[in-house]
């Protein structure tokens, strides 16, 4: 090593050029995705598939005393017994989950992914696992909201990046019938924060699926009250990378069996407090 006796300086232009080159390389790496997630044959050959679940999406998946539990985790336990290969589980936050499925890091998103038009472009969905028609929830003490038309101008809280924002036009149309319109929309990184802000009065109502809201109201009956439906039918399902049809067929077959033998209804009753008897076997989203 030589110790210089003069101060080092690098021409700023050269730095900018080199930085630009590095950035281009990084973006190139990011854009270069695996074109194919593991097919069923590959899964069978390597002996395992990887599913991704969430950790803060009660009652579908959450962590209780260190153990993943909820509707989807119970279905996962049954899935493990009914397929001829190992099912590995990764628990990761929603933010990176679908990216992980579309880059092939995970073979399936085993969580309640709302079936939307946009997501259908990069993902294939299994048959719906529940009914996810959206309702609004309000503070129990708030008497100014009794039905949909009372939501005129009220502050709405939703989770950012949820499929729900695309459904807001439906509520807009409902409100427009009575001459009302949507107030300010506040986005949160996850629903627990949205509920917290609703409870302390920063927002007036939160929109989420009827299942999530029923679970919330059951847990905090003195704080929250369930309102009415604000969208048409909507369903969540598990998702695989688009074109992974054999894996999709296998999982659909599994889900159909659970519906037929009553396991699904049992789990629905346990986690959602009600059963969904008329779920379609496939769903083409309008939104």
């Amino acid at each position: 090593m030589t110790i210089p006796t003069r101060r080092t300086s690098v021409a700023p232009g050269k730095i900018a050029l080199a930085a630009a080159l590095c950035l281009t390389a990084l973006v190139g790496i990011a854009g270069w995705q695996k074109t194919q997630a593991a097919s069923l044959d590959e899964i069978k050959k390597r002996g395992y598939m990887i599913v991704a679940t969430e950790d803060d999406f009660k009652p579908f998946e959450f962590v209780q005393d260190g153990k993943p539990t909820g509707f989807d985790n119970e279905l996962l336990a049954i899935l493990r017994k009914s397929v001829p290969f190992e099912v590995r589980q990764e628990i990761i936050p929603w933010t990176g989950l679908l990216a992980g499925v579309s880059t092939g890091k995970y073979d399936m998103a085993l969580t309640a992914v709302l079936i939307t038009k946009e997501r259908s472009q990069s993902l294939d969905f299994t048959m719906p696992i529940a009914d996810a028609t959206h309702y609004y929830v309000k503070r129990k003490s708030d008497d100014s909201i009794k039905e949909i038309k009372d939501l005129n101008g009220k502050i709405l809280g939703v989770q950012a990046g949820s499929g729900l924002l695309q459904r807001v036009p439906e509520l807009e149309a409902m409100l427009a019938k009575t001459g009302g319109k949507i107030g300010k929309i506040v986005e949160y990184t996850s629903y627990p924060e949205a509920y917290q802000d609703l409870a302390i009065g920063r927002t007036d109502f939160v929109i989420n699926t009827v299942i999530n809201l029923q679970a919330l109201v059951k847990e905090k009956p003195n704080v929250f009250a369930l309102g009415q439906a604000v969208t048409g039918p909507s369903y969540p399902a598990w998702a695989v990378k688009k074109g992974n049809t054999e894996l999709l067929a296998l999982v659909n077959d599994f889900l159909a069996k659970q519906r037929a033998n009553g396991t699904m209804a049992e789990l629905e009753k346990k986690w959602f407090g009600k059963t969904f008897d008329k779920l379609p076997t496939s769903f083409t989203p309008q939104f």
Partner: peptide, 19 residues
């Protein structure tokens, strides 16, 4: 975001369970 449970994520999980 890649599934490592640090202090903040542990807090998120508790909040999600208890609301």
């Amino acid at each position: 975001v890649i599934g490592v449970v640090d202090i903040t994520r542990a807090a998120v999980r508790i909040g999600a369970e208890t609301y």
